[in-house]
Design a protein around this nucleic acid. Structure first.
Lengths: 340, 340
DNA sequence: CTGAAAGCGCTAACAT
DNA sequence: ATGTTAGCGCTTTCAG
């Protein structure tokens, strides 16, 4: 049993060295798997390390090496789309030999706190998933270390952005509904959320392009299920009920579906609904949501590669930062159909 | 602009000391906010630190102090219920003055890798959310540092467990359906998932208690939407279709609803469905799932407190580890109704 | 109230 | 191939 108080003593490299009867430097060589140790000693040291349950102290290693090879990721713990992104970053970082440290935004823990811990952790670069904090805050961050923002369009000096062609995405959705014969298409927007402005713009452009600008209608939503449900309720109470609803994102769309379902309105027979993201939730469940897909795997890889590029080369993305735009695709599922 | 290669140099405590014209020790005192510096110097040092953008290096601090005050949390990035738990751990840890480091299980990144990084990070205790790894692996972990398992019942020496009264939960669900007049109640189980065995047992006990043991039927499911959908499809193809389905958890239930919906079976009119967890997803959306609620906030707090208790006192929970059981509650929503 | 110096666990230069 | 040593950024005695 461990001692009665405080954390148990850790097994150090020196412990292994003593037990194996060699120097700490040699143990270090063996543990890192680099050349410079006889096979016999290597074998022996590994065995002792195993027996003692030695685990290298990454913090000490980082301190000594001067480099952490650590990418800090800020994400929203309740955002299914962020989960997809996290998975992609792990994969890309591992290939490149970098480690990842996560910091969640959750409840009372805001973005500043999340990033502070990342900085204290000696991360070399930051990857932020749809941060809501002001531009000035982001700009300040970028002066300290390479910063990549995913899924929010910010034009800030030094910040790289990986984002979806928001307008193009929503236009795909409008095209889809228009092709199915819809004209009364409303957009429940994202308010101040990242991407919301571009999506509104794309919606208007597409409505005009289809010659149904007169039907334009945008009502305030948000990026939560609640906001979608509230917006849909308001819509149902209005005089003209639309046949097509473009929700800000999948979560919003889920709320919309909830409200429609409760009002006994048939989807897609009476009203069609389109989401945005294609978070892994959308495809499952009887949500079965037609949605505009953002490719999380691709975006995560681009973000990771960009962060690493900044660290390893002179690539500063130009004064104003890189702006990589990923094309979205439409995923047609069960919430849309030809108008009756 | 930063240098062209490698991470920019960090501002260190020594930099601040030099700039402020004091010793590093004094800066340390000021930065930690402890007594021992004149107000004038304190003011001055803080100002300089601010100007230089100094961020204390948590890794160096930990190295020196010998204690990290760090709680390592392993969670599944795609598990909505884990997201709720993470939020709770952050809150509880902050109150107690501990830091939290997250390590996600995602795709190719398995539990062993997730925990390895936690150990390398010098965590003092581990909190694992429904780990699937074998008992021997957990036992080994527990010999190294305090380990708390949440939402999986493991009887392993030295491991503390915080879990829901699984059987009791599923019995609540059976009682609910029985009260509504159902008798043909099947259980789509969780296979080998944590808690699955106890839930099967609870199901059988409750069926017997209601005198409908003859209707007992358990079919294999799992803890994903897919597994639920497959099980439901199988159920629909069988001779006797049940009127009540107890799914292993909310994700499984979501898949069940999906399959029923596609088969044009009315819920709750023709078939009722009950989930388990009440992850934040269940309440939203037209899923509107009746479910057995596990209280994530309470479980997270208990887990965090238990981990800290092990670190700070002689409380070793007894030889075999503490086993804290949290009572579940039934949340009645729209997927259950009186049988017609 | 302030400074000098040692040392946490590790790695990298250098020496043998 | 192996050992010795210095020092990463910080905190903590111990002197002054």
């Amino acid at each position: 049993m461990r001692g009665v108080s405080g954390p148990g003593r850790r097994v150090t490299l020196a412990d292994v060295a003593r037990e194996a009867g060699v120097s700490t430097a040699l143990v270090s060589i063996v543990m890192r798997g680099v050349a410079g140790a006889s096979p016999a000693n290597r074998q022996r040291v590994l065995q002792v390390a195993q027996d003692l349950g030695y685990v290298p102290d990454s913090r000490a290693r980082v301190l000594r090496q001067g480099r952490s090879q650590l990418l800090g990721v800020m994400f929203g713990v309740h955002q299914p789309f962020h989960a997809d992104l996290v998975e992609g970053v792990y994969a890309a970082a591992e290939e490149a030999g970098y480690d990842v440290v996560l910091s969640a935004v959750a409840g009372a823990r805001g973005e500043d706190r999340a990033v502070d811990t990342l900085l204290a952790d000696r991360c070399e670069a930051l990857i932020l998933f749809s941060p809501l904090s002001p531009r000035s805050w982001l700009a300040d961050l970028a002066t300290r270390l390479p910063t990549v923002v995913v899924a929010r369009s910010v034009k800030v000096s030094g910040i790289d952005v990986i984002r979806t062609a928001e307008a193009e995405g929503i236009e795909l959705a409008v095209d889809h509904l228009a092709d199915l014969g819809h004209t009364r298409i409303v957009h429940i927007d994202g308010g101040d959320a990242p991407g919301a402005a571009q999506r509104r713009k794309g919606y208007r452009a597409a409505m005009r392009r289809h010659g149904i600008a007169a039907e334009e209608r945008i009502i305030r939503g948000g990026n939560t299920e609640d906001s979608g449900a509230r917006a849909a309720a308001k819509l149902l109470a209005s005089e003209v009920v639309p046949t097509g609803i473009l929700a800000f994102n999948d979560r919003c769309a889920t709320g919309v579906l909830d409200a429609l379902y409760k009002a006994r309105i048939e989807v897609p027979e009476q009203v069609c609904v389109v989401g945005f993201d294609d978070a892994y939730l959308a495809g499952f469940s009887h949500i079965d949501l037609t949605t505009v897909r953002q490719d999380a795997a691709v975006m995560a890889r681009l973000a990771t590669d960009q962060a690493i590029a900044r660290l390893e080369s002179a690539d500063d993305g130009g004064e104003s930062g890189r702006d990589v735009i990923v094309p979205p695709t439409l995923v047609v599922r069960g919430t849309t159909a030809r108008i009756i």
